[in-house]
Design a binder for these strands. Structure first.
Lengths: 154, 154
DNA sequence: GCTGGAGTGTTATAGCGTAACATTTTAGCC
DNA sequence: GGCTAAAATGTTACGCTATAACACTCCAGC
């Protein structure tokens, strides 16, 4: 049982898109061609992606595109739990566990900038409990650990 | 033992400045007049502060000021552990526990935007351990819980 | 007094994100 | 099929956030 998330590189883009489509259908939302295209671009970049990079990609594909187009699609994908926003980087990563709303912990390598996703339900629940102990009602979390990935630490 | 951090409002600005000064002296760094002034402005605003608000304050005080002036001071204060940067908000808050490098967990109320700071060493250590279990070497963390503060939940 | 480094001033610009409104597309209904 | 309301997208313009690059000042230590 490896809690680390994805096979970091060889995303199977097609399969991921099919899964995303099913995920949206289940939720009664629509993965429109535009949204699907942008998700595909994110998957194609395999890692952390910036909005304006996607904008450039989209412009390359279609000749013209403006920021709101990208940002709206990103907002939708985040809302569906298909991608995560990484605040520290002003960037986005694909979620590796769509379908089951999970507590995400992101691991960012400060050397190679790679991102992995950790499943740490128990630890996060501890954190939530601690907050509740202070009469704070947590609803969602943003947890980013910065450090060295296995490869870079070697 | 209340893990929640500060008396939320009545910061004793003078005392905090004195403490900050001592903190810097200990570390061999200099809380220059400019840095001190900006820290004072942050303290005066009692809560989460945006860089350009500080810029406006500084301009009001001194007639002229430019972004790098503020950002350099903020970078210094963050480096000294005197304030925290809140990525999600592109904003800054005073640290309530200067002097002992602590693992900060921020609690942001999504209704009134107030920020509190939680001491949850044990839970964070659990998180670090989980990351290390995946051969990731964490160095620092950014943990933000969003939800409802005691007042707003009532 | 010279020098090097830290701190600050100044100008310009890059990067990130959204408001507001127009237009098109879609789904549901008669 | 045609109608309507809501959702989605296109388009324009702009505001906020942040940093690069270079000049200048100040001060400690020799």
């Amino acid at each position: 049982m490896n809690p680390l998330c994805p096979p970091p590189l060889p995303h199977d883009t097609e399969a991921a898109l099919v899964r995303a489509e099913a995920h949206c259908t289940t939720r009664g939302t629509r993965l429109t061609p535009l949204r699907r295209a942008i998700l595909a671009l994110i998957l194609a970049r395999q890692g952390v992606v910036k909005a304006y990079d996607l904008l450039a990609d989209l412009q390359a594909q279609r000749g013209k595109a403006d920021p709101p187009t990208v940002y709206r699609a990103l907002a939708f994908l985040v809302a569906q739990g298909l991608i995560h926003r990484v605040e520290t980087l002003n960037a986005y990563v694909v979620c590796c566990q769509l379908g089951h709303t999970h507590a995400s912990v992101l691991l960012l390598c400060e050397r190679c900038q790679s991102i992995a996703e950790l499943s740490a339900e128990a630890e996060l629940n501890g954190l939530f409990a601690a907050a509740q102990g202070c009469a704070f009602q947590p609803r969602r979390q943003e947890v980013l650990l910065t450090g060295l990935c296995q490869a870079c630490a070697a």
